[in-house]
Design a protein around this nucleic acid. Structure first.
Lengths: 223, 223
DNA sequence: ATCTATAGAGAGCACTGCTCTTGACTTATG
DNA sequence: CATAAGTCAAGAGCAGTGCTCTCTATAGAT
């Protein structure tokens, strides 16, 4: 019953994740509450459906945005990815909160159904960075070194898992940029900067993205 | 009734923010549910109490850590701040989620009671950065410029509000570092890196902190 | 025509936040 | 000392929640 997911998304957007009520969507569906249990195992399963739905929507937006940039403009692709994440998050704050905010109490996302869609953004990001590295467009730290042993092992494992060309240093920077990107988006979506601090949050984000690109090793195109 | 806050914190830590139940803390208090309404207006007011409590605990930890570092070792103070945030967050994930995760549905923190404690960390951070700037220890971007007008105005307003010496460029970088720090912590606390990705999350964080210090303009001390 | 699968209704259990009324106990006051 | 005021907690009750169970109506297949 696709209607259930549709109405669930609507409720999610209006009332937030933890207030998602099966009875309420049943009401909106014009049906008694017990009836929806024919189609949905659980409140948690509905939450999982909405979770993978949101993950895929975000992934689609990011893929579109990245594909819309020049293939060899690695920095442009990175900026497009960042902007896509931000604009989706601002447009769907409740879904964003479900994906990247505090975990819903008593709910654990089933890894086997969510890890695939849940990693699309980071897969896209490492794809961009590794392509830049292979093209020789990633500045800084071209060799491994000076990492503590355990961290070096973790980074090596990641490099092996994604079959990357990048040095450990660049992988570590990529991880920082990844978390920093979502940190910046979360601050904006969750209003962590304080009320009415910025008249132009988009411009601040653009600045952040630019600096993060440099941190990742993507040089600013000389304009 | 300090016991209510104490038991509330305990429930928060065990069951999470959105599952905080007045009836449950009343049960643990050995009292009927209506009785706690003598001392607490609301479920939301209990949440607010826990919120400012957590903000202050985090602020205390950060202040202690920063005070424990050499006054003129600006980079050391920054690293101490970051480590304090991370260790508190990992120790009190539910409180951290309440402060920096998705907003609790139907709950809006009363600004007049939370903005004070809620800004202690960022006040400490800008204090560190501005002290470094005044001491001439902040590298990069010593003059304003090349910002869009609206963003430049926002940054100028921040500089005026906190009476800062730093250039607009350094303020913008400080904001990025601020949000990136919490992004990195959130990724770790909320398990966003994926399950079992890192055997040594602390070392990765240490790396991130080091890079973020450089982004803010704090040069690594030559060792 | 009968049999079966399916969709939904309805009642019910245990839980939640919250309100209102009632009663007991303590303290201050005339 | 007796009475009035104030404080604390209990209990009932309302509306909402997730979830389970049993029952019924209907459409399609045999």
């Amino acid at each position: 019953m696709a209607d259930i997911v549709r109405l669930g998304r609507q409720h999610l957007a209006v009332h937030g994740a933890a207030a998602l009520s099966l009875r309420a969507v049943a009401r909106d569906l014009g049906v008694v509450s017990s009836a929806v249990y024919r189609y949905v195992e659980n409140r948690d399963e509905l939450l999982t459906m909405l979770l993978v739905d949101a993950f895929n929507e975000l992934g689609d937006r990011v893929d579109e945005a990245v594909a819309g940039a020049e293939e060899h403009d690695h920095r442009g692709r990175f900026m497009a990815l960042g902007r896509a994440v931000r604009s989706w998050a601002l447009g769907e704050p409740a879904s964003y909160a479900l994906l990247f905010g505090s975990p819903v109490p008593g709910y654990a996302a089933p890894a086997e159904r969510t890890t695939g869609p849940g990693t699309r953004v980071v897969v896209s990001l490492v794809g961009i960075l590794d392509a830049a590295a292979r093209a020789g467009c990633l500045s800084g730290g071209h060799q491994d070194g000076h990492f503590p042993a355990a961290l070096a092992a973790d980074l090596a494992a990641i490099r092996a898992q994604f079959d990357l060309e990048m040095s450990q240093d660049l992988i570590a920077r990529g991880l920082l940029v990844w978390s920093a990107l979502f940190g910046a988006v979360s601050f904006e979506v969750f209003n962590q900067y304080g009320p009415d601090t910025f008249a132009a949050p988009g411009e601040l984000f653009e600045h952040h993205l630019s600096v993060l690109g440099a941190v990742a090793g993507l040089e600013a195109a000389d304009s």
